[in-house]
Amino acid sequence: MDEIEIETRVNGLARRGRVEPRLTLADYLREHCHLTGTHLGCEHGVCGACTVLLDGAAVRACLVLAVQADGAEVTTIEGLGEPDALSPVQEAFRDHHGLQCGFCTPGFVVSVTAFLRDNPDPSDDEIRAGLSGNICRCTGYQGIMKAVRAAARSTP
């Protein structure tokens, strides 16, 4: 099939690419932009590992075609913080054992970042609903709950 030229801004940098229409945004980020922090667990919308911000809204990058993101602003886990300057959500996940193997973590951190931006002072029930779209097979979620509570307190 004919490839299509797309232009996006990823973590603040302008990117141009030629993609097959069937390429997902997740594969575009991983394989064309070499941003492998966006993880792929299920590739059909169930696990949340691939969550990125598309024009600020948290979405599943495996359910967005790269061509649909033409003209959009994308933020991945790499755009949220640096190893020596973690974001408040990343910091809280580290401090409160919000991760073990780390596979699900980029998706959680991106989701929680958007969630707390829109719900700065959430109740535990709201946090649970906000986390429902991300699956973790390691932590049992309690560390993640603690991390989100702490991040909510630390972000003004």
């Binding site: 919308g45 949340g48 809204a57 948290a58 779209g133």
Partner: peptide
């Protein structure tokens, strides 16, 4: 609306 999937699904 809140019963539909998760907020990431509802954004799209």
């Amino acid at each position: 609306t809140p019963f539909i999937g998760h907020f990431q699904i509802r954004n799209r």
